[in-house]
Design a protein around this nucleic acid. Structure first.
Lengths: 360, 360
DNA sequence: ATTGTCTATTTGTCTATACAATAATACTGC
DNA sequence: GCAGTATTATTGTATAGACAAATAGACAAT
């Protein structure tokens, strides 16, 4: 029986729940007609007013539509809520690095398709990300673009599950989380780092230092690319000049690593900076020590941020495109496309400027 | 009579409308009890089910709350929707100038108070602003932080009215619109420019060029400050070295003005750049011509953006605070504070670096 | 002073019934 | 064939009445 008359649960509510289950389980499918009020009356033995109360509530929350004389139909929610939605985007800090470019790419595409973007800064901390999460859920976002924080994998996983549990799709931008079935848009960091390191080797450098943040999947991949390039040229890795520490770093942390690295500068001729902002810090630190780049040390970065401080050879990442693609992907999920998690990898390009000296 | 039985308008709907009017007109005020269903029955002569239908609808759309045994009460909508809202922020471009800093200030304060921010880029064009407007209204934003576009006043006015017509409060950030009664958060551009110009004069400069975008209220005020400073020292304004054109400019536009200004460099010893990004372009152009700053030309900017290119003496604007204050102000309006439009003016500070040569 | 019980009131749930409005469909007359 | 008409199923609006559940407040018991 559909209705348990002896239950303390109101009968209209029992009917309402039953109808929702049928819809969710696909017994009544989108655009199908549900039984008429009369038929529901026969099915359940309830009065028409009670049935109207149950159905009315479902109309209110957007499960059903009623048409006079034609009957009551299941609303195609996918179709409805794909129209104009709000999407949350969580980035470390809108003021730094590639965040502005990424946000702009995402926002342009969102605006083009009449969707809106809620901006959240995480400062690379899961605590802040978590605070944003509850707010975003309340604001009824339909999807999330997330740049994982520089915290242990487990923290990021829990954050994402908050959304997936509620059927809110999540796309990871740039950074990924290992062994997690989530959509992901990134650039080919391995290949990029391999190319960049190979370029240094081609320029005659064999002892190449590297400094990066191993809490970030992107930079771990760059480390692998660096190692692969060295291996290809039978150059052993010198662990003394590989600085790959995990953690969300402040400028001061980096500066310490950099100055210790600069003290060992007899061990290398070039530095591979994990991203352009590190390269910038290295440049400043070198200047203070009276060192010339590329005269004394060659330097490459990664990102191609729009600085004007000095002429850095670096790997250009298509960040604007990365933002756009992330948004397109999340929208396709919001529109109901389901299937295997997708991984979109964009190409990077070496930008040769004048921070590398040819040794040969 | 409240109900017209002969009207084709359903009676529950008449009652519903009547109740809404009473609430909107303040007959029933927030947290007041409305008549009980029984009393409404006596007042209208309708059956209780009909009354319940009317009241039920108002409960659904958030006008009323029912409490068993206690009666039905008017919801304090101000209090309710002040809880967690969405606020739109329209800035020229999240990638450039002070936009990231301003957005971060606003977002931090929003997050702190559990509100969310929808980011919109206008590219300083009213056409884009307008497209965002419709979207924001559909997304049911409760307030707008708007940096007016570099378009004629009338365009910005129309944009703002789209919101005010719908009782959505608007706060102008940084730039203002003349003769318009809107809340406004800004820095004291007149005083800042006056101080900055006075500083140049104190350093021995008497012939000071200025280049700025007169489509922006902020830069117009800076021009006035500049003129006031010259007047205070009985220095006549040389119109040949005052470049104050109106319009949204591209980098190329500025570069043209700059090169024509640099051709006339016998007429001045210092340049006041309308904002730091112009100063940056002047610096680059000067370098290309082999000119030294401050050796050949002294230069000051306005904003104190975080560049690292060169050491620019400039006027620090508290942009992060400006974002925060804008958000606080809009929230107070959303919470229902009404009264005269407010104007919050933040102090700027001269940051003395090394782009100005002392001539005395 | 606290706890339990009762009462009155108000909203919550439910039944049974009636007629109105709407629109798809079948039918009728030309 | 086609325009107009009648039929009919379905939701929309409305009434009258009943009992259930919750709770403020009064009162009683401990």
């Amino acid at each position: 029986m559909i209705i348990d008359k002896s239950s303390p649960i109101p009968q209209y509510f029992q009917l309402q729940t039953w109808l929702m289950e049928q819809i969710d389980q696909g017994v009544f499918r989108p655009d199908d007609q549900v039984p008429t009020e009369k038929e529901l009356g026969q099915l359940t033995g309830l009065a028409r007013a009670t049935i109207r109360q149950a159905v009315g509530n479902l109309v209110n929350i957007g499960y059903l539509v009623r048409h006079r004389r034609l009957g009551t139909y299941v609303l195609d929610r996918k179709k409805e809520n794909g129209k104009r939605t709000i999407i949350g985007i969580l980035i470390p800090d809108i003021r730094t690095g590639y965040a502005p470019e990424l946000a702009r790419g995402a926002e342009d595409e969102a605006a083009r398709q009449s969707h809106s973007l809620i901006l959240c800064n995480t400062d690379d901390s899961y605590i802040m990300a978590d605070r944003h999460a509850d707010r975003l859920i309340e604001a009824q976002v339909s999807g999330i673009i997330f740049i994982p924080t520089a915290n242990p994998v487990e923290r990021n996983r829990l954050f994402i599950e908050k959304f997936t549990k509620r059927d809110i799709p999540v796309v990871l931008a740039d950074r990924t989380i290992p062994d997690m079935a989530v959509d992901h848009v990134t650039t080919d960091n391995f290949q990029g780092a391999l190319d960049l390191t190979s370029y240094l080797i081609k320029m005659g450098h064999r002892r190449i230092a590297i400094i990066l943040n191993s809490a970030l999947s992107t930079e771990r991949e760059r480390l692998e690319g660096y190692q692969a390039a060295l291996a290809q040229h039978d150059i052993p890795v010198d662990p003394e000049i590989v600085i790959a520490e995990a953690g969300p770093f402040s400028k001061e942390h980096y500066q310490e690593y950099i100055s210790s690295l600069l003290e060992r500068r007899d061990r290398y001729t070039a530095i591979f900076a994990g991203h352009d902002r590190i390269a910038q810090l290295i440049y400043s630190a070198a200047q203070e020590l009276g060192l010339d780049i590329p005269g004394d040390i060659s330097l490459v970065g990664y990102d191609d941020l729009p600085f004007t401080t000095f002429s850095l050879t670096t790997m250009l990442q298509p960040i604007y495109e990365l933002g756009r693609e992330s948004l397109k992907l999340i929208l396709s999920r919001i529109r109901g496309e389901n299937g295997e998690p997708r991984r979109i990898v964009l190409k990077s390009n070496l930008v040769e400027r004048s921070s590398v000296k040819a040794l040969n």
